[in-house]
Amino acid sequence: MTFLQAAFSFLVFIAPMAGTGVWLLLRARRAAANSETGSLPFQPAAEAEPLRFLHRLNLSQRKVLKQQLQLGAALGTMLSWAFAYIFCMPLLGAGAGGPKWFNPSAWIWYTFLSNGIHTVQFLSTMVMLCAITTAAPLRLGYEALFYRTRPIRIGFLFWSKLLPTLVGLLAGAALGMALAFAILVAWKGQVWRNLPTTIPRALGPEDADIAQWYADLLVTSVPAACLSVLTSIGLLFTGTLALATSPLIRSKSTRTLPFLILPFFAVGFGLIQISAFAGERTAHLFRYLFIYMRLGPPPPYVFALVPVALSLAFIALARAFSDRMEV
């Protein structure tokens, strides 16, 4: 990828987020300027009539839930954009390794899927921060002091933070993947339909890697890879949440908590990288966790239940911690 291509690619990714950031900044400045010219008296608008399915909740519960739904929607939007972008990165500058491949469609499809299965790794920091944001009103700083001293059950606070964020992340990822496939089809057509079932020409020893990668590509299951992305996000998110609510991590600040959790992830990430390429025995671990570390034969679908069960266990753990945690 040339410098210009990289710059263009970065610009495409950053433009919507930078635009939103500038808009928010301008809005905040305008509000600040208005406040300097003299405040309006405190005259709050009447509370809107609740939606039908929220009738059973009281006003404070609806307020908290509304905030979290907005946050979940914002996170989902951001994540879907990031997913679509990372999947489609090869389309923005796909030519770098292409000439070595015997078939342009095969190269595009390979890079598209390779990027796709590594998206969780690219976005792991974002998922981690989302989990920490979920834990914040339960244990961190003034946000926790505020929400934990309002007349609202800890259980409600926990679930109303967790579910919109987790659903937002998973829906955002799913939407992002769908968007990426739509862009691929619109831009390059259905490239997976144009793949030769065998390698069309004799490859020399220097092309052995390509032959292996192509063989892996042919047996890759796209639905399993997409499902793996979702279960991996769930696992990463809930694992971080359990850590963030755990009494082992003694932090009362949103700023320091990531630094306390980071070593766990550095070690975990390192172990994953080492064991993924260490040999067949450790590779099984990832199959059991339904993690697609590289293209190849998919793990059986039933293994998807393992990360789901682990995620549920992490959530149960975080819920138990949230009752005992002190601010």
Binding site: S35, L59, S60, P151
Partner: peptide, 29 residues
């Protein structure tokens, strides 16, 4: 935000009175 947690007891008049007496700027971040 706080108002919505105490719909039974909250007083807008009292909020305005405290804001006025303490000279609190309402729209500064």
């Amino acid at each position: 935000l706080n108002r919505s947690f105490y719909p039974g007891t909250w007083s807008d008049d009292l909020a305005r009175k405290v804001v006025r007496r303490l000279e609190l700027p309402l729209d500064t971040s």
